[in-house]
């Protein structure tokens, strides 16, 4: 008999009222503690990453919260890793992060930010990555992008430039151009 580790506590959806815990201003009130800011204070080239989360019918998911994890501008992680949180804002139906351009972490990996999606109807958070369009070698050389068997899906992990330092990255939960999601 193999030795079984303990079972992980099961995930459950964050639900429609996730903002109470993650972004009280979107629930309609304020709390004295900061439950996450969509703005990084690290040193580096400032960039903005924004986009929609779309369901399988193409409709924007307006009640999601997106979290970002990335290396700092020098590619450092550990206690230099950056974590941010942004609800979908009603005016734009977009999440929006003001952060620094991440450095590549090493080992031939292109620079990326990890994004987690929490929402009603999402039973366990979805994880994906946004890479940068300037890294034209990344689809062939990055160890994750190069492993995507359906090559036309690689583009679902590459943000599009939307002005200097501005990037757009839409996340499609399902459907024709479904984003590649990761089991990390």
């Amino acid at each position: 008999m193999p030795i079984d580790p303990l079972k992980e506590t099961p995930s459950q959806t964050a639900g429609p009222f996730v903002h109470i815990g993650f972004a009280p201003h979107r629930a309609g009130f304020a709390m004295p503690f900061d439950t996450g800011s969509p703005r990084a204070h690290a040193v580096g080239e400032r960039i903005v990453l924004t986009g929609q989360v779309l369901d399988g019918s193409g409709a924007p998911v307006t009640d999601a919260v997106v979290e970002l994890v990335q290396a700092d501008a020098a590619g450092a992680v550990g206690d230099k890793a950056i974590w941010l949180r942004s609800p979908i804002e009603p005016e734009t139906a977009c999440y929006r992060f003001e952060t620094v351009r991440p450095g590549a972490i090493g080992d031939g990996c292109a620079a990326y930010v990890t994004l987690w999606i929490f929402a009603r109807g999402v039973n366990i958070h979805l994880e994906t990555r946004a890479y940068f369009p300037e890294d034209t070698d990344a689809p062939a050389t990055d160890p994750v992008l190069s492993r995507i068997e359906q090559r036309h899906r690689v583009e679902t992990l590459i943000a599009t430039a939307d002005g200097p330092g501005q990037y757009r990255f839409d996340i499609r939960l399902q459907g024709e151009r479904e984003t590649v999601f990761l089991d990390v």
């Binding site: 996450g36 974590w83 972490i105 090493g106 080992d107 492993r147 999601f181």
Partner: peptide, 26 residues
């Protein structure tokens, strides 16, 4: 609600790297 919010393709399995193993600092 999960019907239209669930990916149809299999997740791409990758090994956790230095970022995923980093300790959250807020």
């Amino acid at each position: 609600t999960s019907v239209l919010r669930s990916p149809r393709a299999a997740l791409l399995s990758i090994e956790p790297g230095p970022l995923e193993l980093s300790r959250p600092v807020f």
